[in-house]
Amino acid sequence: MTPRRPALAEALLVVESLLLGGGQRTARRNAWSSVVADRQRARERAEAQRVLGGASAFRP
């Protein structure tokens, strides 16, 4: 059985479909996907800097 979406999320999707055309909806979702990917890269970059910064402290 597939879990149901919360009622609020479902309502927001309905409102979105009424207010935005298909192209605008796709553009907004693509933009949000880019934001999420940028945030993930930033977290990974910060982690790499922490690891490399910690490793440099152990050099003779």
Rank of each mutant, 00 (worst) to 15 (best):
R29A: 05
G22T: 10
A48C: 02
R29W: 04
V35I: 02
R5E: 07
D38A: 14
Q40F: 07
R5V: 08
A37N: 01
A42R: 05
E47G: 05
G53R: 00
G21W: 01
L12K: 09
R41E: 07
R50H: 04
W32V: 08
G53N: 00
A48S: 04
E47Q: 06
V35D: 01
S34K: 11
A42T: 05
F58R: 13
L8C: 09
V35C: 01
A11P: 05
P3G: 01
Q24V: 07
V15M: 12
V14M: 14
A11S: 08
S33P: 11
T26V: 14
G54N: 10
L18Q: 13
F58L: 15
V15R: 13
S34Q: 13
Q24M: 10
T2P: 12
T26I: 15
A11N: 04
R25H: 00
G21D: 03
R28S: 11
Q49T: 00
R50G: 02
T26D: 15
M1Y: 13
L13A: 11
L12E: 09
G54D: 03
L8E: 09
G21Y: 00
A46N: 04
P6Q: 09
G23V: 12
R50V: 03
F58T: 13
T26C: 15
A42D: 06
R41P: 02
Q49N: 05
E44M: 00
R4N: 13
G23H: 13
S33E: 14
V51I: 10
P60K: 03
T2R: 12
A27P: 03
L12A: 08
A9V: 13
G54Y: 03
R59E: 14
L18A: 14
L19V: 06
L13Q: 10
A11I: 02
R29T: 04
A11L: 07
R28H: 08
R5Q: 12
W32R: 07
Q49K: 01
R43W: 07
L12T: 04
V51M: 05
D38Y: 14
V14A: 13
A31L: 08
R41V: 05
P3R: 12
V35K: 03
G23D: 15
A7D: 03
R59F: 09
D38S: 14
G23Y: 12
R59D: 11
N30L: 14
R4A: 10
A42H: 10
A9Y: 12
R4T: 08
Q49W: 01
G22F: 09
R39L: 15
L12Q: 08
A7Y: 08
L20W: 00
A48R: 00
A37E: 01
M1C: 14
Q49S: 02
V35N: 03
A48V: 01
G23P: 15
E16L: 02
E10C: 06
A27D: 07
L13P: 02
E16P: 08
R45T: 10
E16T: 10
E47I: 04
G23M: 15
A48N: 01
R28N: 09
N30K: 11
A31I: 04
A48E: 02
S33A: 13
L8Y: 11
A27I: 03
R39M: 15
E16V: 06
L8S: 12
W32S: 11
R39Y: 14
A7Q: 07
V15I: 11
A11K: 07
